[in-house]
Design a protein around this nucleic acid. Sequence first.
DNA 1: TTTT
DNA 2: TTTT
Lengths: 172, 172, 172, 172
Amino acid sequence: MLNRVILVGRLTKDPELRYTPNGVAVANFTLAVNRAFTNQQGEREADFINCVVWRKPAENVANFLKKGSLAGVDGRVQTRSYDNNQGQRVYVTEVMAESVQFLEPKNANAGGGGGGQYPQYQQGQGNQFNAPSTDRGYGQQQNQNPKRNNFNEDPFANDGTPIDISDDDLPF
Amino acid sequence: MLNRVILVGRLTKDPELRYTPNGVAVANFTLAVNRAFTNQQGEREADFINCVVWRKPAENVANFLKKGSLAGVDGRVQTRSYDNNQGQRVYVTEVMAESVQFLEPKNANAGGGGGGQYPQYQQGQGNQFNAPSTDRGYGQQQNQNPKRNNFNEDPFANDGTPIDISDDDLPF
Amino acid sequence: MLNRVILVGRLTKDPELRYTPNGVAVANFTLAVNRAFTNQQGEREADFINCVVWRKPAENVANFLKKGSLAGVDGRVQTRSYDNNQGQRVYVTEVMAESVQFLEPKNANAGGGGGGQYPQYQQGQGNQFNAPSTDRGYGQQQNQNPKRNNFNEDPFANDGTPIDISDDDLPF
Amino acid sequence: MLNRVILVGRLTKDPELRYTPNGVAVANFTLAVNRAFTNQQGEREADFINCVVWRKPAENVANFLKKGSLAGVDGRVQTRSYDNNQGQRVYVTEVMAESVQFLEPKNANAGGGGGGQYPQYQQGQGNQFNAPSTDRGYGQQQNQNPKRNNFNEDPFANDGTPIDISDDDLPF
DNA sequence: TTTT
DNA sequence: TTTT
């Protein structure tokens, strides 16, 4: 049935990249999407929308987006539930991104005192990461994001750590 | 910023209509949206997506949709949080419907043993409830839904009951 | 870049199914989408939006939709141009449907004097035709639509006729 | 009925601003939206999608966007027809933008040899122009776009010129 | 050239 | 008649 979401917003934090035991990449990030209108107090609020993305686009997200990046998402609303450690059922609504568009200018965060230039990447001029139909991103992947590799205290904190989810849980 | 959701699905229950202390109508309902693909087990799953709608369209939803109705929603993803009675912060992601389209044929649930015909309503042939820009739906509203009026044990259970929310919390 | 269209409307005519010389199915149809608002004269107008769909979903559209059918489309806006027989360049804007959802109740047009029951098809309860990533619909295809097979004067008028387009023109 | 389009792309030219005889602003522009995929020749193509926007957002578009600007559009697909000077009926499909989001960084085109800084405007950090429900933009409007006022050969070429359309033709 |  |  029809289920389509399109968002443009900014990442509230660096994306988190994980791998399933079978080596499939998954990235999580939250988009802050400013509302078009102001509330009674005249303040502009934002919605903080959790997004998931799988496989190659997950790795692209981890490599090319970071806290504050402007990004567009085209995907679906998905719901799931799990039991937390207090034994309560928790219901989750999130956006499964099918494609993510990178909306920062290519020289964003460049200049100034020292580094920060985004790595060389070009897929034509689209700057869009689409879910590939076939190639599964098996195995450990080299994170090419200099930000993450060079400047974090622990650059591997969230990278390559298998997470407790089987491929049977994959949504496709 | 861009924030758009379009859904087509079926109501999992009758919609719940409430009024703010100032008499503004709000309806809540959940859409079951079947996924286009099947999971590893070959089963077709569904997403259960909570929706809110305000003012006149809220009353239309309460009057013309019920459990099982096929409906289309055009709206925005919104997030909010509140503290539950265990003192934990709960985060909610839901769809704020700006317009709701009624997709059942006009004679749905008609015929057979006794009633169930939908009340006479026609806004051209669109069958779509749009958020009015101005007219605020103050005061008690006559629920014209025969289903709700005639067959529920307590037809007013969820109708017209002011809820603990001030107009300051209204999103527009 | 982000390019997403979602429509719900009714077919203005039976869809037209063609095949490229390489045997790839293409269907064209026009959706009449009623506007949510009325014009100055108080009339509700409609937009007549041309849609194209490729491969397996094209055949599903031809088999299961007909003039007047209610359908949902999830796709992209595409533009192209060609030179007409007067030697003028003609610009075309149309919707490339990636998935088409069949919104008629399963027994639509059934009953009454004589046939018309839709053929048995079930993909769960989704009734949605998605573009398959791989299987190319080569070769002549058996049209299972009883309407088209049994009641048209020339049931093959628009079926299986190769059209003058090479696979190089395919959008994917 | 559901009719929703979301686009992100770049203006192919400066927008054209007109006024109806009643003083209602209308802007036209074309978005070049790069496709996510490449064609058989490995080239990335684009769709060139004509957009219209009315009233205040029309003036914002004229003031803040120009050739090459990156913009997001949330709107509807509309169709209309007219008879051209050869007496042929011409069918037009375009996007009626309900809101337009300005996606350039605020200092875009700044620096370098000579001017080009965007005028001071701020609606929070949203940079989004929404169709106001009420205020009609009557009368001649001061175009505040320095680009258009200062650097064009004929800065008023397309501004403030009443066009031959009555308010009865307005879509809302 | 338009659908219910 | 097309944008980066």
